[in-house]
Design a protein around this nucleic acid. Structure first.
Lengths: 214, 214
DNA sequence: GTTACCAAAATTGGCGCCAATTTAGGATAC
DNA sequence: GTATCCTAAATTGGCGCCAATTTTGGTAAC
């Protein structure tokens, strides 16, 4: 009967009404507001986001396609439980792809783009102090997207952005401690240094360590 | 006014009614029945597949998410035009991933799995003679999925299966001539030989050639 | 006291209708 | 004869209702 973390009489989020409900729910999952396992009752989402039933259902269907929520027919939608094996596999895929384009990244890195990367890395550092978990996640994503874009393969940028989302509860489980978050911030700068120095092998080493977080 | 290749009074496809409409439309796109650029009118799909309006709309929304059809608000859905750059980028991604796991494939290849691969390769060869374009596409996919599965990363298998679909009209544009199809069939056997011989570098070379088709 | 069964409440999901937008065709003015 | 505006047909897309299924709570039988 009782759902976890969702109350029917909760304050309606009246943010930009034009934005799609799918993104709103996605953000709440990524922000850790909707914890893994949470039963996403349609009537509650309807009230929470101030939208209609069909909108909710379309959003849930899309999230199920993206494998962010699990759908059991006639029994509703639940936020996916974190899966250790899947997360590890996604990490392996990221390592393969991101080390493979390390050479292209360095070859295409202009002084202009390096400056852009530094700005994004700094924004990440500042968000550690001032921002929310979701903002941190987005600042991190922005840095990595800019980095991948230098590889010159747009499809690859979108692909990695997509599979990153798939390991839901990412921001929650990814950075356990503040020390680990700050380490991530430092690694961003080290990666930029490697790019500036034109050291492909060093960039690959740093990339592996950054993704594995070990 | 007039849509391309779809007629309202066309015969209703009364295949397994239980299967999802999404797959039916997907198959028709992959089979080349719905050519790139085709305007997918909801009322026509409704009649063609003998289903309701909401079912059609859900299917179109899913295909739009998968980027197989293009959606312009208030102006309907169209089958994506083939994009040379995107297709090339997807090929590059496949090459990176499939060469990266060549070592694991060989390490995990048991006599049993090699036999399975041979059977699938033969099924592809036979489908060249007897089957439709869609069956050929599926036989090819089955072989490559089995190959990738040996890599041990299930997420990677699903990922590649997914991005393969994204370059729509794949079967149509992929194998232009019968000679090229037969060449693909031969390459499958060469790849199995390389696996059996434990020659990682040869498998990588063959993989690149097979994906690039040059 | 425990178990099985039944009824009622709640939730999911399918379906059709109607409004909003776009497109095509025709009439009129220049 | 051509361009522009207006009207009508067609298509998309939003919304609410109702049926089907599941779950819960209570009751009765053992």
């Amino acid at each position: 009967m009782s759902d976890v973390g969702l109350k029917s009489d909760e304050t309606v989020v009246e943010g930009e009404a034009s934005r799609d409900v799918t993104d709103l729910i996605l953000n709440d999952i990524l922000a850790g507001l909707l914890l893994p396992g949470t039963w996403l009752k349609q009537i509650d989402l309807e009230k929470r986001y101030g939208c209609t039933r069909p909108e909710v259902r379309r959003a849930l269907d899309r999230l199920a396609q993206k494998r962010l929520v699990e759908h059991v027919p006639n029994r509703g939608y639940h936020v996916y439980e974190p899966d250790g094996r899947r997360a590890a596999e996604v990490s392996d895929i990221r390592i393969i792809l991101e080390t493979a384009i390390a050479g292209e990244i360095i070859a295409n890195a202009s002084p202009d783009s390096i400056q852009k990367l530094r700005a994004l890395a700094k924004r990440f550092d500042q968000t550690i102090l001032l921002g929310t978990m979701l903002e941190l996640y987005e600042a991190n994503l922005a840095f990595h997207r800019e980095l991948l874009t230098l590889g010159g393969n747009k499809e690859l940028v979108e692909l990695i952005t997509e599979i990153r989302q798939r390991t839901s509860s990412a921001p929650v489980s990814q950075w356990r401690t503040r020390a680990r978050i700050e380490q991530s911030g430092r690694e961003h700068h080290l990666m930029i240094n490697a790019i500036e120095a034109g050291d492909v092998e060093e960039l690959k080493r740093l990339t592996i360590r950054h993704i594995r977080q070990s």
